[in-house]
Design a protein around this nucleic acid. Structure first.
Lengths: 337, 337
DNA sequence: CTGTTAGCGCGTTCAA
DNA sequence: TTGAACGCGCTAACAG
């Protein structure tokens, strides 16, 4: 293994000079620089990052805590984060937490051992108190979900507003019997979307029925969406529109309707959330609230990097724009009450 | 920051003793051990991995080169690799290569700088010669795709045999006009599957038509599958079966058929490859050749770890079993020639 | 503009 | 069974 010492010897200079050239810190005479560069070439020297990172006391690794890599929603966020940090010379380690506090804790503990310089969390299952202890010690950014009790860095869309717009759209179409498929998970986005659904209906004096509110599996599985939709579609009176808090759920609802002999959107309108690829695979293409996933990732990464760089002051809240994308699965109800 | 020195001082022993206890190397008197453990607790000491890794000259990081994280096929492989290495205390860094040689080279160069201890590649775009130079220097495993010119560690299924069985199944159903949607990429699996398709038809004396062989996009996009299927379905005579080398392609083919007013499997049989989740989302559920993705990942990880551990001798080739899963998209042709 | 030198925190001889 | 001491490769004072 060739070290900086070998290069120095070969070039007839001191290690300090080589280091200066390598890191572009301090001035070095052009002629000397040339000799050093030649030596580096000749010995095909590569700096040992293990030593450098140790010396600098930084790992150049960042951690990403993700509840479930399998979920296509997260994939583009991961891509966004990865692109930013790769450019910066950092490695991103993805940790699958499965929403288990132990797993999350285990990952976070790595920060204490200098295994990573910072962390981006897609979801948090720890108590606000425990979570805060980590956030106080290490650079940390919450992406897409966040703890509302804490004033920590976060990047997300405005879930409440986005849902409100979606429901208003349904109302403007003439729908009055509007159901929702929420989730049994505890995410803030889930609560916000449900609350916006309730509030908006109330604002329009539309009566709510508990039977119109279903909760699919915590991970928004297609199967559970299909099952809950079937429950909804066999309710009397049947809803004319179903607002699903994820596209996978919406896909399940569309299939459920078809299996029961209903047409989408003629007999029932279905709208989703996120705008993952599947929404435009089959007809009817699904009307949905799009999230800027890749940008969510990029912004989170940039926010984390400014924290890592010890920027004294950094943005705490980044809210990115959502967009209601009207496609084929929504239409006015055939029968108006 | 509390170091091993602080612990030693607190416990009234030398750093060597603390280190011995920490790493379970050498014997330490129970009473001393207790004192040290107490000191560690009291100071809530955490070993600095930066220093440890530097000293041991290992990064405890492994690299995964993946052409495209977005592809659901890779996700379970990644999960398998991640599970194995997490248990071993390693971090896995996923690198998206987009099948670009520069990106791949860039990632591989990180090994020279001790940024990672080994690498698993899902695909390789470098020349055999250049690739070999890396493989000779560093622990390396090829997962799912591999360079047939080199005798390097690899884990995959038998693509040729799997395809042969799929085609034989179609023949046994009575199909004679069998088309294929391959890909324009250069993967070994693509070649193998196409060759097996050709060879098997020839073995059954079934005439081949160039018009029955289509090449979808390099990344098996749904859209390109749909487009190529439409070309196939407007060919005269129309094929009665389409063998697709990926499930996404098969999904595209099913939709294409439906859009053209054909029923699957009555009018045309479609079979896919990989067995990703989507195959059982919509009816008809898709007949496909299943790959044990998670296990592919696990085996690759284990193989890499034995290499990293300097095991003098390790397995070079691991071939995992595939399985033809017959579902709803395949049936005998209505009209026999 | 360049060289000398002191550690960073840890694991590991070697001697006791 | 334990401790003293060295050095891994690098960066950054500091002196010149």
């Amino acid at each position: 293994m060739t070290t900086i010492k070998d290069v120095a010897q070969e070039a007839g200079v001191s290690v300090a000079t080589v280091s200066r050239l390598l890191n572009d810190t301090g001035v070095v005479h052009p002629e000397t620089a040339a000799r050093v560069t030649a030596a580096i070439q000749k010995l095909s020297y590569e700096p040992n990052l293990l030593a450098r990172n140790f010396r600098r006391s930084e790992s150049r690794v960042i951690l990403i805590l993700c509840p479930n890599i399998t979920n296509p929603y997260y994939v583009h966020i991961l891509a966004g984060i990865g692109d930013v940090f790769n450019e910066l010379g950092y490695s991103a380690v993805i940790f699958n937490t499965s929403d288990a506090p132990e797993r999350e804790r285990e990952a976070l503990e790595m920060l204490k051992r200098h295994r990573a310089d910072g962390v981006i969390l897609m979801a948090n299952t720890l108590s606000s108190q425990e979570f805060k202890e980590y956030a106080d010690q290490f650079p940390l950014v919450q992406c897409s979900e966040y703890d509302p009790n804490l004033q920590l860095a976060r990047v997300s869309i405005d879930n409440y507003l986005a849902t409100q717009e979606a429901i208003e759209y349904l109302v403007s179409l003439g729908h009055r019997r509007i159901a929702t498929i929420s989730s049994e998970n505890n995410y803030l986005s889930t609560h916000l979307r449900k609350q916006a659904y309730l509030d908006t209906l109330q604002r329009y004096n539309i009566s709510l029925s508990d039977e119109y509110i279903k909760h699919a599996s915590y991970d928004y599985s297609f199967k559970s969406g299909k099952m809950k939709a079937k429950e909804l579609l066999t309710t009397d009176p049947m809803p004319t529109a179903i607002f699903c808090i994820s596209d996978t759920l919406a896909l399940g609802a569309v299939i459920a309707a078809q299996e029961l002999g209903y047409r989408v959107p003629e007999d029932v309108t279905v709208i989703g959330f996120d705008d993952v690829e599947h929404t435009t695979m089959f007809h009817p293409f699904i009307t949905t609230v799009a999230q800027p996933c890749y940008e969510l990732g990029r912004h989170s990464a940039e926010l984390l990097f400014t924290q890592i760089s010890h920027a004294s002051d950094y943005t705490r809240e980044v809210v990115l724009p959502h967009q209601l994308i009207i496609r084929e699965s929504s239409a006015p109800p055939l029968i108006l009450d």
